[in-house]
Design a protein around this nucleic acid. Structure first.
Lengths: 210, 210
DNA sequence: ACCTGAACACCGTTCAAGT
DNA sequence: ACCTGAACACCGTTCAAGT
């Protein structure tokens, strides 16, 4: 049987699949895996997210996802990229709101918005800032992580009394913000101190420290 | 058959097992699981640690560990407790070394020793400060976590110029230390900044900020 | 008391086959 | 091109049985 005939048959099958929208072909499986993946992530938690369960909840066989993602990790990397993009978008949005707010109050608000993102998307945040989802794994993650960091630098520049190098200072600010986020998300607050997800900002670095 | 006779038989079997040290009975399985678990943790990583693999490497059946730990999580909690104890011991040891070191240099050294523990026991640190191993899960974890925190407070008291509440300040110091530890362990350093596990302390909070 | 073996309900992943 | 089904190599965990 000549190759071109087989190609013709394949094309026919593909076309009929797309046109008739048979239940055999899902149609938007790749995007559905991403959307449903983000939902399942927050619902079941990062550790419990399973490719098989995801496939079943989309009414597709256990192995269907492998047509769109080579490994489970590849899907997680795309989910992390979605997270980094959402994070960068939020930060740029908040930057506009803080444009006229300076000094002490500005730092308070930075803590607030950063905390809102982390505590509002706990599993996504955990994925993004973990070995699995870390920004080094994809171009899209890296670009949006860089975009987020750029906003943090601009936010800090309008906050500092001193004229120190903002890049270095933003790094310690970032370490602080991430530290608090992880402490609150993983509940690793030292005992008998009375810190919780409501009042933690009172305990965080005060602006007069700068 | 009367119960006391069965008990007698059981006792006989137990005794013979202990005295003859047959290969059927391991003898120190519980402690071996903890020791081997700590090794496997750092070798294979937290996510790859498997109860079955652990059992096999100890030459025992896959289900033998269940005689000593109800669940995998229970073993992980004990491993975390070992970690918290080691951490508290190290901190108390370092406290003695820092007794005559004050101010600026003292903060540098705190960063150094904390970083040494986290980067020296990366998987153990990750387990301890995660949902799985967090100190709320066992009395022993909690006691040693509290012991560690107490050392941090004493270390900070000898460092501060101001007379602020040390507990609140230590919390922000802890968030900072933990943030840096996680950033370095998970490689989530913002791109193009040139921070790494060697030079990170130069970027961390400077003592003159206090 | 301590351990084994078979069994169950999950995983991720591969590959030949179907449409 | 896209999906299915059987199969493989892993998991954690339960339970009846062995020593």
């Amino acid at each position: 049987m000549p190759t071109c005939f087989i190609d013709f048959l394949s094309a026919l099958i593909v076309l009929s699949g797309m046109l008739e929208n048979t239940p055999y072909h899902h149609g938007h499986l790749r995007q559905s895996l991403i959307d449903e993946g983000l939902k399942a992530l927050e619902q079941s938690g990062l550790e419990s997210l399973s490719l098989r369960a995801l496939a079943e909840s989309l009414g597709v066989s256990k192995t269907a996802p492998y047509r769109h993602f080579a490994t489970k990790r590849d899907l997680l990397t795309v989910l992390a990229a979605e997270g980094y993009q959402l994070f960068a978008d939020k930060l740029e949005e908040w930057e506009k709101e803080l444009i006229n707010i300076k000094g002490k109050e500005r730092l308070n608000r930075i803590y607030k918005v950063y905390g809102e993102f982390a505590l509002g998307n706990p599993e996504l945040y955990r994925l993004m800032f973990s070995r699995l989802g870390n920004s080094l794994h994809s171009e899209r993650c890296r670009i949006n992580a860089q975009r987020s960091f750029a906003v943090l630098i601009r936010l800090a520049e309008g906050m500092l009394d001193s004229q120190k190098d903002p890049r270095s200072l933003v790094l310690s600010l970032y370490a602080n913000l991430h530290g608090w986020a992880m402490i609150l998300l993983d509940d690793i607050i030292p005992p008998d101190v009375g810190v919780n997800s409501e009042n933690w900002q009172e305990f965080a670095l005060k602006p007069e420290l700068y």
